[in-house]
Design a protein around this nucleic acid. Structure first.
Lengths: 137, 137
DNA sequence: TAGAATACCTAGCATATTACTAGGAATACT
DNA sequence: AGTATTCCTAGTAATATGCTAGGTATTCTA
């Protein structure tokens, strides 16, 4: 998992947590998350294309979630930002002529499935709850 | 997961499956697995250093498992060959000052744990069994 | 004892990826 | 008019990937 997936997830969580305040600008986001505006610009774009956030241009603009936090999960976020599959042959089985006879292929598949299941089971709503619990300590 | 982890796992499985024939040379291995001898040389070295295989030099030499197939699991193999951790902060928490307050950190940890558990639960013995079943089809 | 087959060691290298930064254009609020 | 924002395209230094190449040391076999 690269910084794209990680920062992007943090960005989405930040936007979710600050939902009431209206659109979150990248400047605010950058400050709170200690990231550069310029890099965030690049991360947010795929998230927008994936239909997870909507943008409002101009002064006072920023980003909002395009759905309820309970309707966006981490798999959607991370997949918008990077290729999650542990090995190429899972994406493009034709890239390896051995898939049919390869016992290890099945293992990589299991790894991917378990990763996907974990990420898909966690919504932004869940993450908001977790974050609040952390902050309370 | 890079080719190191994948090819290395295939190599270990190959050595396990051909255990009765004595030490497996990289030349044989390369032929059966359709990989180059030179690259295999580089993959096998860390596996040797991790104490998973033993080498026999000179003509007629090759590699053998240093323990029973049931006593070697995939986690040991893959960890010998590459860094499995999905994000740096899991390896070196001090690399990110936000770990304590970061809700996403816990998620990456879950992903890593589940991956580790799957790999640790599979021994070379299990893989041999799986491979035999595949070949029977 | 010579030769062949092997493991072992180090270096190099082309390509791709990563993690950004930079500069500016378009848009919209005040 | 000016400012704050999103949007778009390039560029780039550093690192990782996936090898190849060349040679040395060791051991078996004829």
């Amino acid at each position: 998992m690269s910084t794209k997936g990680r920062y992007g997830t943090r960005a989405m969580l930040d936007i979710a947590l600050n939902y009431e305040k209206g659109p979150v600008s990248l400047r605010e986001l950058a400050q709170r998350q200690e990231l550069s505006v310029k890099y965030l610009e690049q991360l947010i774009q795929p998230l927008k294309e994936a239909g997870l956030v909507e943008s409002i241009r101009g002064a006072g603009g920023g980003y909002t979630l395009s759905r309820l936090p309970s309707e966006i999960n981490l798999l959607q976020i991370v997949q918008a930002l990077e290729n999650l599959s542990p090995v190429d042959c899972l994406d493009t089985p034709e890239s390896c002529p051995r898939v049919s006879k390869c016992a290890t292929y099945d293992v990589w598949k299991e790894l991917q499935d378990s990763t996907y299941n974990i990420l898909a089971s966690l919504t932004l709503m869940d993450m908001m709850e977790r974050q609040r619990q952390k902050s309370e300590l």
